[in-house]
Nucleic acid binder design. Structure first.
Lengths: 316, 316
DNA sequence: CTCAAATAGGACAGAATACGTCCTAATTAT
DNA sequence: ATAATTAGGACGTATTCTGTCCTATTTGAG
């Protein structure tokens, strides 16, 4: 037994590895007649692995999606990439996926050839991916409805508690999810506030998928919105600070905040709002380049106070 | 055709999903006689998928590692976890694995059932994993020898350029790799300096695997060493700063750096070394709590200069 | 339009395979 | 010792597999 079984699986592997192959090529590789290749194609279909074909010149066979994922054949390099990916995914700390991750790891661990396992073991034991630690695991019951909502572009009702505020029900059109600095966030259109908002998933106390659909804006960029909503958050005072440096230096000192700087003749303009000039002054004082405060005067005062504080410390 | 093929693949799937199953159980699930199950076990062996068995009471069959990875059957949940993992791995920006990641993604994309693909598409399109951006891709030619060295505990010779210094050859026993804040690092024992050191992979200009072996210290923790080596790095000057705050507040302002603070009667002692009082003064000036500089006097001067700089800006 | 190169699938004969049954043998744990 | 498991050869019967042969259809290039 097993001659045909081996050859059918070999066919599957060939088609997985190549976008498309001709019947002649497949017959040569499998050591059978083209008529048999056609039978094997039928066999794959019977296995629930549909194959699409093109007739005529440059015709050939290609795998297409079926109702079920077929057996997957991975090369060693691909398997190691998967190992690394699972290692990284584990750090994302999503409750839903941790079980699945362990399951995949167990499956792979069980059957890996010794050499590959040794390498994968070296990856798992000796490579660490440090992501900012998440205090709390992002609760598993939120992700599935969120993914549904994202996929189907349907609104959700959430019970959400902003920082130091009582929980409020809101209707939101979720546009995207984001993992950043150890936390998961959802960006979307908030019907309560009538504008784009970003929500921390660990503050989500309840979520319910609605029937109502929405249209996500074309080319909505979750990370971009997140950055601007975080640093463009409403505050009492408009702030304008001119940084006398170049974009590269700014990025090194400020990380992603630099993405919101606007190039001007005199340098890079930081335009934002703040509730606390004191906090902003502190943040500004660590910048390793010159800057000028354009607005507001309160910020100049705060920076002066900061300078005085530091002077006192230096003279102790 | 395909009856046996289907059943052999079903057997493989069953064994992948369960640690072990008896022949009786397998026969029932496959709808065949136990004698046939034994033939299918042989078929798997002929496919290069070895199976180990236990005779006697509670006997059964188990998959073991062969010379080649067998066809893998993943559930939908597992596939989505893999998708998320690949998304995260992509952000790690290792040149070697990017090709393999794309390859795996293409393979999965090609055959995923529509529902699963839609969900995976939603993940890829709407979930962003923001890791600190890496300026430069970590060069591909370093990883393979490094993984070899880690796996086989063999020394390497590296040509390495510390910050603003000429490249130097060093012999290193690599203990681990670390991805943190957008960069890849290697921790290991440096024979040139006769102590543990941490190296940035993007500053690695050359690497060569040696025949010489080493013994990695038991329970070596890459991340732990990294943290202490980064903040305990040798410098010209001993630094002691007393922070007049509590541990929790310190952690909020300083992140992981807080782990190296020592509690004292007057507050928390930061004890480190630095080459640049100017940089440290800048860093200190953002702290939102009071502190006192104990050592060195140069740091007090630097802080004074920082205060003067800020005062100038505030008075413009 | 013709031709070449591809896919498609039915039919046939002969070879090969698959299966359950029956049997003997060996290994474990109770 | 017994029960419950794995092991594998042999047999007869039914089924499957294969290459060959053939006709049919689809593409792209000249």
């Amino acid at each position: 037994m097993s001659g045909p079984t081996i050859r059918v699986l070999s066919l599957l592997e060939l088609l997985q590895s190549h976008g498309r192959l001709s019947g002649t090529e497949l017959a040569a590789r499998l050591g059978v007649d083209k008529r048999t290749v056609r039978r094997y194609i039928q066999a794959l279909e019977q296995l629930g692995i549909p194959v699409t074909t093109e007739q005529g010149c440059d015709g050939g066979y290609m795998l297409v999606a079926g109702f079920k994922l077929p057996p997957m054949m991975f090369t060693n390099d691909e398997t190691l990439a998967l190992s690394l990916g699972l290692l990284a995914a584990h750090n994302l700390n999503l409750a839903d996926t941790q079980v699945a991750i362990s399951s995949v790891q167990a499956k792979l661990e069980r059957v890996m050839p010794a050499k590959l396992k040794s390498r994968a073991r070296a990856i798992a034991d000796n490579i660490k991916v440090i992501l900012p630690a998440s205090d709390t695991e992002t609760s598993g019951q939120h992700l599935a409805p969120l993914l549904d909502a994202l996929e189907q572009q349907r609104s959700v009702t959430i019970r959400y508690a902003s920082y130091q505020q009582a929980p409020v029900f809101r209707q939101v059109d979720p546009y995207g999810l984001l993992f950043r600095s150890g936390r998961w966030y959802m960006s979307g259109y908030c019907h309560l506030r009538q504008e784009l908002r970003t929500f921390r998933l660990d503050r989500l106390q309840q979520i319910e998928l609605l029937q109502q659909c929405f249209n996500r804006p074309a080319n909505f960029d979750t990370a971009e919105h997140f950055t601007s909503s975080l640093y463009g958050m409403p505050g009492n005072l408009d702030v304008q600070v001119m940084l006398h440096t170049d974009k590269h230096t700014a990025a090194q000192a400020m990380g992603e905040t630099a993405s919101m700087l606007k190039p001007q003749a005199e340098g890079l303009l930081l335009s934002t709002r703040t509730d606390s000039c004191y906090c902003l002054a502190q943040w500004l004082s660590q910048l390793p380049f010159d800057f000028s405060i354009i607005e507001p005067p309160e910020l100049k005062l705060a920076l002066k106070q900061q300078a005085e504080r530091l002077m006192n410390i230096a003279q102790r």
